[in-house]
């Protein structure tokens, strides 16, 4: 396979296994590029990319922007707080206005699930979903799998547990799709109130006990509790949450094997994960951030090469 099967990256569930292989091979190349003294290639000098962030983001936005600049694309940034969105303009109008300024690609983060899919049907540009509500966050799942592959050699056959707020998490959903597509086995662990009742329809199992989940897995992906997406209180206090679902040094050292610890960030230190674990050699949290740039370069490069055709 030399090109992606899709024209947009809207979610992992729209990809095939071969797409992920191609993205990873391309990312390998870019990872080498960003470790050179001159960290830039001229590949996308004729491409303009708009980063539209209708929801707060620090690392994803920086990572995309850096990836775009390393590829020599022209970049414009837009965030909802400065925009006319608050004046009642529709999403389609906002984006079409930006596209009229001859933009080729849109990277969008949006609070509503399906916003990327909606946009791809109504505007003429390649869309990369940088997170849409509790739906998908495909580049995060790709960089997570890429980091597992880097650490453990391959993803196929690995056992991964995702711990925390599964109900409100696009990272969990995209990771489940990505890991299953590559042949990994997935369990989820967290308070029953934060795990969808029908999660089994995705082919994942629920492990209510964190220790048992950790004993089972090769990789633990610790999620943040997304207080901002909760309309009611799903557990009594963060103290009680931590008592049951915190990954700390004692727990990690009591296992009879060495597991890989991941976190998509931002970390609530002392809540879902303690500092000594987050900063330990078993954690690959900063590798995930570095790989994020290479993987996003790969995605942008591969989608841009379809535009050029």
């Amino acid at each position: 396979m030399s090109e992606l099967s899709v024209d947009h990256l809207l979610g992992i569930k729209y990809l095939q296994k071969e797409d992920i292989d191609l993205i990873f091979e391309t990312a390998d190349h870019f990872k080498e590029v960003i470790n050179r003294p001159i960290k830039k290639v001229p590949s996308l000098r004729d491409i303009t990319i708009a980063n539209l962030f209708f929801e707060n983001s620090t690392r994803t936005k920086l990572s995309f922007e850096l990836a775009e600049k390393r590829l020599s694309a022209d970049v414009i940034n837009f965030s909802a707080s400065q925009s006319s969105v608050k004046k009642g303009e529709t999403l389609i109008d906002t984006v079409n206005n930006i596209l009229s300024m001859k933009v080729d690609m849109v990277v969008m983060r949006h609070p509503n699930p399906g916003a990327g899919v909606f946009l791809s049907k109504h505007v003429d540009a390649s869309i990369i979903n940088a997170g849409d509500g509790a739906h998908e966050h495909p580049t995060q799942a790709l960089l997570d799998s890429y980091s597992i592959r880097e650490r453990l050699g391959e993803v196929a056959g690995k056992k991964v547990v995702i711990v925390g707020d599964i109900l409100h998490s696009r990272v969990a959903l995209s990771n489940i799709f990505a890991l299953q597509l590559q042949g990994a086995e997935v369990k989820v662990c967290g308070p029953k109130t934060l795990i969808p009742k029908y999660i089994h329809t995705l082919g994942v199992t629920v492990e209510p006990d964190l220790r048992k989940a950790l004993e089972w897995c090769d990789v633990a992906n610790m999620l943040r509790v997304q207080n901002e997406r909760m309309d009611i209180s799903y557990f009594p206090s963060t103290r009680e949450y931590s008592q049951q679902f915190q990954l700390n040094k004692n727990l990690l050292e009591s296992l009879d094997k060495e597991i890989v610890v991941m976190h998509p960030g931002p970390i609530n230190r002392g809540v879902e994960i303690t500092s000594d674990v987050a900063d330990s050699g078993q954690a690959i949290i900063l590798n995930q951030v570095e790989n994020g740039v290479a993987v996003r370069m790969a995605v942008i490069y591969l989608l841009a090469s379809k535009i050029k055709q």
Partner: peptide, 8 residues
């Protein structure tokens, strides 16, 4: 199932 798959 659909609600989960769509994040709605």
């Amino acid at each position: 199932a659909t609600a989960i798959r769509l994040g709605l």
